[in-house]
Design a protein around this nucleic acid. Structure first.
Length: 659
DNA sequence: TTAGGGTTAG
């Protein structure tokens, strides 16, 4: 506790005049962090000098109490004290913090009347900042242009403003002007301009600025190094980011985080997780940015165990209610097929927002809980939250994955009424939904309504044709795709598979030789499984795994057992012309079957859920086979394919055989 | 005696 009397006597002994007495005392309180005591004293002062008002206002803004700052700003004028350049240099920030644009403009007007707006560079840069935060870069530029003695801070404020409004080229232009005017950039300017270079992925500009940093002697400042690292990673040169990071003597929390973010953005999730472990090992505390990023790395690698350990760190640091970490956790559990945990995280969030709800709806949709997704979607409105385009994609996917066609159509029709723009992604969901439901003509009509239909839309329709064996329609659509993107790999594969599944082997051979001529390669089917934190990958028909013998033994055993229960190999899914027996054999070596056999051989505990992942969609025969296997071995099996999750429990699948 | 700008995420 601060002893008022002691501070007072100390100040009196120091010989301050009556006028400065109050101000020094307020300062003393503020240095001890007690803004409430400072305010109490301020209110009791018999004479309130302008400096006292300014000190008090600036402190409120530093303590993030903008409302109180504005309150004092208004009161000083009522008491006949005119704001000066010091007042204005702080007060504009409180209007932007509160998003109070009109009041901010009024204060700007007042500063003009008092003739302070452009004569003082501090006031000018505060105004530039305010307008930039409101997205009014024209006003910001106008004010900046009139300021008499422009300095480096004013220019930096403009650069930051442009860059945050996505006008990075303008930011670069301001930087160029500043250098031409002979104003030297400092570490703040360099940090800001490098963000603009990163956003533009403008490596040559970035490199020249790197050179300038070295020349100006800011090379070893951590903030400059961090921004350089970020710039290189945004330009896709992650190796340079790693080189810079190596040279930094004492990387801080932000530096580590920037590196980890950059690695994930460049698809180097495994390295990112390795760096994260090093960061923890070096006793650097991660924050919400770090944790949400590494959690996303875990989701894309489907590393549930690693993700759970990071969840423990989230809890330990007290970020359970953080919306960024929360959304990333919901995503992780959803993508790993654990909707129950996703819901627990969601419910523990103090305040939900559109992003956390989107993540939860997406988790439901991937795991086939269409009704729950719809329920949450409806609850959004009760919470006063507006769905955005991502919400609509997630909820349409949910309808699609659960076969809720009527609901899906109704929601699709409502998108534009909700002030959301229809994108090709929305149309793709609908085409898939209608197509799978056999409404192929409607799906085609819908694509005709799209302004710029892309290849994905048409390919989705071809895929639906395959499900329903509509060869003629598929061929017709295929011609359209070839016009759009000659040599589209995915479409050729789709059509060749369609011919194969309808037994048109001559056309298959023709397609394959055509693809060979065009040098198109099929993406090989792959499944993988994480056993004891080690990832094992399997390819169809490839028996090169060191434990192949055991895997085949296990497979043979399983096949015998499931055949007794009624499994009949469905050779329609064999896409080669072979005799029936060889067709059956080739089915047995599908990658998902190999992965499951391996996991069953390695894990004997009945309570361990088996989780496998596949890069393409799970095939129909494997789907039936896994259902039987889950029954005969009494184990839960979760399979994530390119589209969604399948939970196999006791002979049934969560997708109800609709996928 | 009081003042302004920077680095990381869905």
């Amino acid at each position: 506790m601060v002893d008022l009397k002691n501070v007072q006597s100390h100040i009196i002994k120091s010989g301050y005049t009556l006028l400065t007495f109050g101000i020094k005392l307020i300062d003393a309180y503020l240095k001890r962090g007690s803004i409430v005591d400072a305010r109490k004293l301020f209110d009791e002062l018999p004479v309130r000098h302008i400096v006292a008002w300014n000190t008090m206002i600036a402190s409120y803004i530093n303590f993030k109490k903008s409302g109180e700052a504005i309150g004092l700003f208004e009161r000083m004028m009522l008491e006949g004290v005119f704001p000066d350049e010091y007042t204005f240099s702080s007060i504009f920030k409180s209007f932007s913090d509160l998003g109070n644009e009109r009041e901010g403009q009024r204060a700007h007007g007042l500063s003009v009347v008092l003739g302070l707006e452009v004569s003082n560079v501090f006031v000018g840069s505060a105004l530039v900042n305010m307008y930039a935060k409101f997205g009014k870069m024209r006003d910001a530029r106008l004010v900046a242009g009139q300021v008499v003695d422009k300095d480096v801070v004013l220019h930096t404020a403009l650069i930051v403003g442009y860059s945050q409004q996505g006008q990075d080229s303008e930011a670069l232009e301001v930087f160029g002007n500043m250098i031409n005017e002979g104003i030297k950039a400092n570490e703040y300017t360099f940090a800001s301009i490098l963000i603009a270079c990163g956003n533009l992925e403008g490596l040559s500009n970035g490199k020249s600025i790197h050179g300038l940093i070295i020349k100006s002697g800011f090379e070893s400042v951590v903030a400059s190094q961090t921004s350089l690292l970020t710039m290189y990673s945004k330009c896709g040169i992650i190796s340079d980011s790693l080189k810079i990071f190596k040279r930094i003597a004492n990387p801080n929390q932000v530096t580590w985080t920037s590196l980890i973010v950059g690695l994930v953005q460049n698809g180097r999730e495994e390295v990112a997780l390795k760096k994260f472990r090093q960061m923890i090992h070096n006793s650097i505390k991660p924050n919400s940015f770090t944790l949400s990023t590494v959690l996303r790395a875990c989701s894309s690698l489907a590393m549930l165990e690693e993700g759970k350990q990071i969840h423990a760190i989230v809890t330990k640091i007290g970020l359970d209610r953080d919306r960024y970490a929360g959304a990333a956790l919901i995503d992780l559990y959803g993508k790993c097929g654990n909707t129950v945990m996703a819901k627990l995280v969601f419910d523990a969030l103090g305040e939900v927002d559109v992003v956390s709800i989107n993540s939860m709806i997406y988790s439901y949709s991937q795991n086939g809980y269409g009704r729950d997704a719809l329920e949450l979607f409806n609850r959004m409105k009760d919470l006063g939250l507006k769905p955005n385009d991502v919400t609509f994609i997630s909820v349409l996917l949910a309808c699609n994955n659960s076969g809720l066609v009527v609901e899906g159509c109704r929601i699709f029709a409502s998108i534009e009424n909700n002030n959301c723009e229809l994108t090709n992604d929305h149309y793709a969901c609908m085409v898939d939904m209608l197509g799978r439901a056999g409404r192929l003509e409607e799906a085609e009509m819908l694509i005709k309504h799209v302004k710029n239909p892309d290849v994905v839309l048409w390919r989705t329709l071809v895929s639906a044709c395959r499900i329903h064996g509509e060869v003629d329609m598929a061929e017709r659509i295929m011609d359209k795709i070839i016009d759009l993107v000659p040599g589209d790999e995915g479409t050729h594969v789709l059509l060749s598979n369609l011919y194969a599944s309808t037994g048109r082997w001559n056309q298959v051979i023709e397609m394959k030789s055509m693809m060979r001529e065009m040098k198109l390669k099929k993406n090989p089917a792959m499944s993988w499984v994480d056993v004891d934190r080690e990832v094992h990958t399997f390819m169809a028909g490839n028996l090169s795994h060191p434990n192949s013998r055991e895997i085949i033994e296990m497979l043979e055993k399983l096949i015998k057992k499931v055949k007794i229960l009624g499994y009949v190999p469905d050779t329609r899914f064999v896409l080669q012309e072979l005799d029936e027996e060889r067709k059956e054999r080739s089915l047995y070596y599908h990658s998902e079957k190999l992965a499951i056999a391996f996991a069953l051989w390695r894990t004997s505990n009945k309570n361990t859920t088996i989780r496998i992942f596949k890069n393409l969609r799970v095939c129909g025969d494997c789907h039936t086979w896994i259902k039987f296997v889950s029954k005969v071995v009494g184990r839960d099996i979760i399979a994530r394919d390119a589209k969604r999750f399948h939970h196999f429990i006791d002979g049934l699948c969560s997708c109800s055989d609709y996928w």
